[in-house]
């Protein structure tokens, strides 16, 4: 995982959805690269295709055409179980709505990916506890999600995303359900994780949130733009 080598490289990715007879093109030839150790944000309004892009990067979906290289592996035509393994080992997900299972405690939520990784129970507990300590929630390990604040829940979700020690942290509007101060705390965590060497890709519609990243790519109507082009287009839309 030496810094500088590309971990995510997308070349001319297209994706469209079929809804009955209607064909919805979502991504029109996306090409970009994320190097190991980068903190990249993907900024775009809703409907821009950024969620679809995240799904493809996260191996939850596959592109219609183009090439997606995750590390040295080409993600194409892989069986579902291999995709599941990639999601388990190589990518950690953080969602806008936290997505914690409501009936199990914080630590059990964090242990979940380790169950799918077939880690023995004793190790699962120790590793999940270590991750909770890292996000400062060791004392809340046995709380149910509803006994935690939104910020705390998102920190549990981050601990869960990191517990299998993935190379990439993939976040979809991670501060969308949080107030500004709490959102800033989450961004602090992302920045310090990035300093530890984890590659972070964050999808957002919020300029301020995007600015926490070291680099921002702009997406609009399924295409990537430079900052200047994007701002011009955005202003044009608003005008």
């Amino acid at each position: 995982m030496s810094a500088g080598k590309p971990v995510i490289s997308l070349t001319d990715i297209t994706k469209s959805y079929q809804m009955g007879d209607v064909h919805f093109p979502v991504l029109h030839g996306i090409t970009f690269t994320v190097d190991a150790g980068e903190f990249v944000s993907v900024l775009g309004p809703s409907g821009s295709g950024k969620s679809t892009l995240m799904n493809i990067i996260g191996c939850l979906d596959v592109a219609d055409s183009g090439t997606y290289m995750l590390g040295r592996r080409t993600v194409k035509g892989l069986p579902e179980r291999t995709m599941a393994r990639i999601r388990n080992r190589d990518i950690g997900f953080v969602f806008q709505s936290f997505q914690l299972l409501p009936r199990i405690s914080a630590i059990e939520n964090v242990m979940l990916p380790l169950i799918y990784a077939k880690v023995p129970r004793a190790q699962r507990y120790a590793r999940a506890m270590a991750e909770l300590e890292r996000v400062g929630l060791a004392d809340k390990a046995n709380n149910l999600p509803r006994q935690l604040s939104g910020g705390q829940q998102q920190r549990v979700a981050i601990a869960r995303a990191l517990v299998t020690r993935p190379r990439i942290l993939l976040a979809d509007e991670p501060t969308g359900a949080l107030d500004r101060a709490t959102g800033a705390q989450i961004m602090d965590i992302f920045q310090s994780l990035n300093k530890e060497g984890i590659t972070v890709v964050m999808i957002t519609h919020d300029h301020k949130v995007a600015s926490f990243a070291s680099r921002t790519v702009y997406i609009l109507d399924g295409k990537l733009y430079s900052k200047e082009e994007y701002e011009a287009l955005e202003l044009g839309e608003e005008g």
Binding site: G58, L60, E80, R81, A84, R85, R87, N88, R89, F93, Q99, L101, L112, P113, Y116, A117, R160, T164
Partner: peptide
């Protein structure tokens, strides 16, 4: 449904 989606995102294979 949401739980199933999440479990899949966390790496649960279909067989699991």
């Amino acid at each position: 449904t949401a739980e199933i989606g999440l479990r899949k995102a966390l790496g649960a294979r279909p067989s699991v």
